[in-house]
Design a protein around this nucleic acid. Sequence first.
DNA 1: AGCGATATATAGCGATCGCTATGGAACTGT
DNA 2: ACAGTTCCATAGCGATCGCTATATATCGCT
Lengths: 206, 206
Amino acid sequence: MELSEPVIARRTGRPLSFDRDAALVVAMRLFWQHGYEATSVADLTRAMGITPPSLYTAFGDKRQLFREAVDRYLGGAATIVAGIAAAARASDAARDLLTAAALGDTGDDTPPGCLLASAIVSSSASAADVREELAAIRRGIEAALRARIERDVAQGVLPADSDAEALAGLVFAVVQGMSTLAKDGAGRDKLMRIVDGAMRSWPAAG
Amino acid sequence: MELSEPVIARRTGRPLSFDRDAALVVAMRLFWQHGYEATSVADLTRAMGITPPSLYTAFGDKRQLFREAVDRYLGGAATIVAGIAAAARASDAARDLLTAAALGDTGDDTPPGCLLASAIVSSSASAADVREELAAIRRGIEAALRARIERDVAQGVLPADSDAEALAGLVFAVVQGMSTLAKDGAGRDKLMRIVDGAMRSWPAAG
DNA sequence: AGCGATATATAGCGATCGCTATGGAACTGT
DNA sequence: ACAGTTCCATAGCGATCGCTATATATCGCT
């Protein structure tokens, strides 16, 4: 699930005239703010300060640039999954996930909402596979949370009749939904209180 | 908030060669499935079985057609707001809202997810105002739920320290989030169990 | 039949989409 | 200096976007 540009090749030649990583961050912010389809290559090149051929040689095409931007945004989806598995309890993993989402959705100098949640909703035929990639990342994180919950159930930390799938699904629904709320204008304080409310639905720990 | 075509005008002339309402339903389903921006006028005219000039004379332009489709989808936003206000208790209104969303997101012969939640997330400059209209509808429904909760608090049905804004926000976040889950493949059964989980966070009734 | 009014079909407007062919500029090696 | 390699800038590709000008067809009315 990790993306990394190949370190091979590069046989002399004219050097890059721009900071590749800085340009990637600029692209990430544009995708974050406007979504995948509404961000045009012209928008990207203008904001990144480069011309289309430079973008295409450096990042492949718009789709691959978006993939790198998503990975940059998440800090590596694998990191998140590992963090869930490493939490002391499933409820901690859930609260961490919700809190990180609430904070990330309402950063002072970042666009409101969640890139992963809102980058692609509409699906023109050309973007359907990109959407499916994002869905796979979402399902992967949700599955990790569900597995962490089931571990707590097996160890008696959570009641035996806990619905792990529904619990994980609820957490994820709130994560996704908070992104929309943030885009609609909700502030950090409100989202944090929503997180508190969501965690109230958590079964009593043993 | 209600849209209705004017019944005035109509001074003879050639009659419509298609069923306006049936065509509207077709458009609604397209918008529902692909979102606002990803549904092109060419897609619409092809599916509706009409030509572009017919669409523009009958519905104005793409934006107005979308507005009518949204209204058709919601069955009138005012109806929903009235239903919330009329519920016996705020918790009933919340559960009804969540259940309706879960069912609507997973209809057998309708696209997965919620038109209101997912039609516009990305916001190109041209669609920003349409997005804002949808956000206003969402905020209106959320505000109605919040008002209903505050009424229960004032009447002692809910604890005095209940956070009405957060409760309404949580319900709405789950509604929005379930749409994404449905689009990602979640079924009706799972969503209904998520609804049950969400309602567990509700304060104990008096 | 003729007129005013409205809807329809054909065709295509200017703008933008993602993307790239071409040629020159900037580097490392020999 | 020169070859080899890679990047940059200009310009523009074909396709699609939302939308409409033009001309024709179909209605009620006189």
